[in-house]
Design a protein around this nucleic acid. Sequence first.
DNA 1: CCATATCATAGACGGTATCTATGATAGACC
DNA 2: GGTCTATCATAGATACCGTCTATGATATGG
Lengths: 287, 287
Amino acid sequence: MIDRYLLRYFLAVIDHGNFSRAAEQCNVSQPTLSVGIAKLERMLGRPLFHRTNRRVELTPAGAHFAVHARRIEAEFNLAEAAVAGQRGRRTVRLGVLATISTALVAQFASVPGDADEQVELVEGRERDLLDRLARGRIDAALTILRPDNDRYAREALWQEGYGLALPASHRLAGEEMIAAEALADNVMIVRRHCEVLAETSHHFTTRGVRPFFAARTTNDDRALALVAAGMGVTVMPDRHAAPGVVRVPLAGFDHVRRIGLLFATHADPADLGRTVTLAAVRRAAAA
Amino acid sequence: MIDRYLLRYFLAVIDHGNFSRAAEQCNVSQPTLSVGIAKLERMLGRPLFHRTNRRVELTPAGAHFAVHARRIEAEFNLAEAAVAGQRGRRTVRLGVLATISTALVAQFASVPGDADEQVELVEGRERDLLDRLARGRIDAALTILRPDNDRYAREALWQEGYGLALPASHRLAGEEMIAAEALADNVMIVRRHCEVLAETSHHFTTRGVRPFFAARTTNDDRALALVAAGMGVTVMPDRHAAPGVVRVPLAGFDHVRRIGLLFATHADPADLGRTVTLAAVRRAAAA
DNA sequence: CCATATCATAGACGGTATCTATGATAGACC
DNA sequence: GGTCTATCATAGATACCGTCTATGATATGG
């Protein structure tokens, strides 16, 4: 059966007049395109190109085939556009990193009622979201961007450091910056799925500070509430905030996380990017 | 990118109103089709079907998409037909088992000059031909049909046994049938790539007959020539014949080989089957 | 005759379409 | 209400094949 990718190779060769540049346009290597054309010719039982060393040109059979190939490609595009422009609620499934501030998530948790769209939020840790992306269970993920992961199309949104969260009543609440040593006899709250948990632990222990852990939670809102209640302090990303909680930088702790969108391979980033849901995500990120 | 196979799944579901029978028509399992439709829906960002337990029906988006899907499928078929009906020499690459009689092969070695076709014969052993089929280097193979190999579409042509080939001057040349024991002190010629070589050897040794091997060749025509020259006798498929060579059955040796065409997966058996080349193969087989 | 540009071939790798096996759900029937 | 049957969905393993890198073949130009 003739597959669509073969038509694209074929049309690219026609448009560029040579295999190498056609391959480049198709984002494949030249040999890949070469075997692709050969396969197409085998399936049709006839050569589609005359290969001379300096150029390739269509055979008569190739010329006839090209007419249909172009029509098919055009029709595929029309088909996608027809459904994209279609009325009827579209569901955008968005994975959200669990350590992203609830206040921020709340800003795009629901879309306006007049939009033909609904959001489905899936909370998870970094690894969970990547798994879901790979399996196609979500359309995009709002998560940490790692330079070494180039499997997915991405859109950077913001970056933030980590700092201390203290009760407003804390004796150090007014400081510009706090050193780890100043917290020697403090009570701390552990955010168990924090992505820099190991680094945080290391930061304190190498400075001889071994605080008592009054609570361990995977829920950042609970951690904030406990801080506000005066139970202890914690380290968390800068954008987390709550009434009664003061944020102060931690001296020498300069980790930064880059947050943005990763798009599932099944999704068209341009199309998905135009949804009101992702527009709301961008607005919330910029605020 | 939406692939063609997904459209076929989609159209099959519409035509049958249920996934299971659609899968059957597409020659895939029901789960395969299920994930295929799911993938298509993810790519388009919208469900294409309403699933109730008793039936599936198109959503509005699905109905719009269906129009384009049908048009695309039709255009694919037109494209193939356009090239198939095209003038210009078409090359049919036919693998031929080396142990098939030269006289038979000669009958389809060339096609009439007025046909828009040329043949390219590739000789090889059974294994070679299967390799070439798998790699798409030949369009079809005239070879042994094994029941356990269902990788390729097939067309049975004939079957033949194996028997002795004797010089016309041989003392047993007039017999109706010859037993292995009667050949005890005969000289034999070994056809080295015979597919039943092991069985032949076994047949003689278990009967206490250990003849002298005067020649070992991979060329059946040479083997026949040596037999005609009176050098010795050999065992070969029944359809091998030459002047001065008499064929007599070998008692108790009832192996049979079934010969036919295997079609490469890239080829459309129906289309390829209509070529004058394969018509000539059929005529030669029937003669 | 070497340098350059072209397409073809070979062997290895990885992704994914596919499989079998199983689950989930709901209507039909007694 | 249970059980049967028909439906689609999910999970994990498998195998094919599209893709890669590396190399070859072939012609053209300086």
